[in-house]
């Protein structure tokens, strides 16, 4: 991937946070966050059709701009003014709202406007209805699949099993974070500053791993995690699997808090299965084992072609993160420990 990036002539990144990708960019266009900008209205054709107005709650910080502004300014500079015959998004929204009998003025007051359904949303008993299939019926046996030479009825195929000492790598999300973009937020960082490796107590016993033991992960293809994470012993995970919250282990030094916290699951996912019928990707079929001793930097970098950091930057950011970790020890951390003792 790094090779592909480095072969590009130009990389422009639009993001609200300094992410890994922005480090590779020739041009960074910093975008305002969703709370700082107007966005196109949300329109839902649900049981109750509705439109919802999205407006800034606070003024945009720093030199960030909304994406519509970037598009318009780029358009003007490229001589495409005629495609942007409006001043700002408010003007666009006002026009759009007026098409459905509302206005920007009204939406500013009410926020959400609902409309009556124009077509029935439920089928009535005995009503004749043709579904979008070959037979016009709900197909449990898919004639479409059969025609194309696939299994018309889904068949169970056994998933791969890990070698001894390896565990299924399962990942998911934490309710307090929304992707990587909230991980540097002071309040949310304070709540959940790093991911943990969830391990069943029975598995942990085999390895001599205790709660809060530092560990590194190595996958079936030899890729080692760039940073460590602490073990969390819990019955909420099966003995043959480990679980981590996705999206930690950032490397961009501008993420002053989140950098270097936790294990990034992405480099450990080297095996991806693709559904032969609809093309969906399955990424929870990788296996990892534990490294209890800190691997050398060279070993880590060689295992996955991680980008080696320039030594100068590293020294500076390390100091900062050390200071931070001292400051966050407080009441809450103790309460969280208490929780583990109880469980």
């Amino acid at each position: 991937m790094f090779k592909a990036i480095e072969n590009q002539d130009l990389i422009v990144v639009v993001d609200t946070m300094p992410m890994e990708m922005t480090g590779y960019a020739d041009v960074v266009l910093p975008e305002s966050t969703y709370l700082e900008r107007h966005d196109y209205s949300r329109a839902g054709k649900n049981r109750v059709p509705q439109i919802a107005f999205r407006m800034p709650a606070v003024e945009a910080k720093y030199d960030s701009k909304p994406a519509w502004w970037m598009a318009k300014e780029l358009g003007h500079r490229l001589g495409l003014e005629k495609y942007y015959p409006w001043k700002d998004l408010e003007e666009v929204l006002d026009w759009q709202f007026k098409q459905v009998g509302s206005s920007l003025e009204e939406m500013k007051k009410i926020g959400v406007k609902t409309f009556p359904s124009t077509e029935p949303i439920y089928l009535l008993p005995g009503e004749d209805y043709e579904f979008n299939t070959n037979t016009g019926k709900i197909e449990l046996y898919s004639t479409d699949f059969a025609e194309k030479g696939y299994d018309a009825m889904p068949k169970f195929t056994r998933h791969d099993s890990p070698d001894p000492g390896f565990y299924h790598l399962v990942y998911g999300r934490a309710p307090m974070h929304t992707f990587g973009r909230t991980q540097n937020n002071p309040y949310l960082f304070d709540l959940y500053e790093t991911n943990n490796v969830w391990i069943n107590p029975r598995t942990a016993k085999l390895w001599g791993i205790e709660n809060d033991s530092d560990l590194w992960l190595k996958n079936q293809d030899g890729v080692i995690s760039e940073f460590s994470a602490k073990a969390r012993l819990t019955e909420r995970i099966r003995p043959d699997s480990i679980y981590m919250v996705h999206g930690f282990g950032h490397t961009n030094k501008h993420l002053s808090r989140a950098k270097g916290r936790g294990i990034n699951d992405i480099p450990l996912i080297t095996k991806i299965k693709i559904d032969p019928i609809m093309g969906g990707t399955g990424m929870r079929n990788n296996f990892v084992t534990f490294l209890l001793e800190e691997p050398s930097k060279e070993e880590i970098i060689a295992s996955a072609n991680y980008k080696a950091e320039k030594p100068k930057e590293k020294a500076a950011s390390k100091k900062k993160s050390e200071k931070k970790s001292e400051a966050t020890k407080g009441h809450k951390q103790e309460s969280h420990k208490k929780e583990e003792a109880k469980s």
Binding site: R236, A327, G330
Partner: peptide, 12 residues
Amino acid sequence: LGYCRDWIVEAV
């Protein structure tokens, strides 16, 4: 930051 008046307990 680092302190709280309310908190979440997870019991398993």
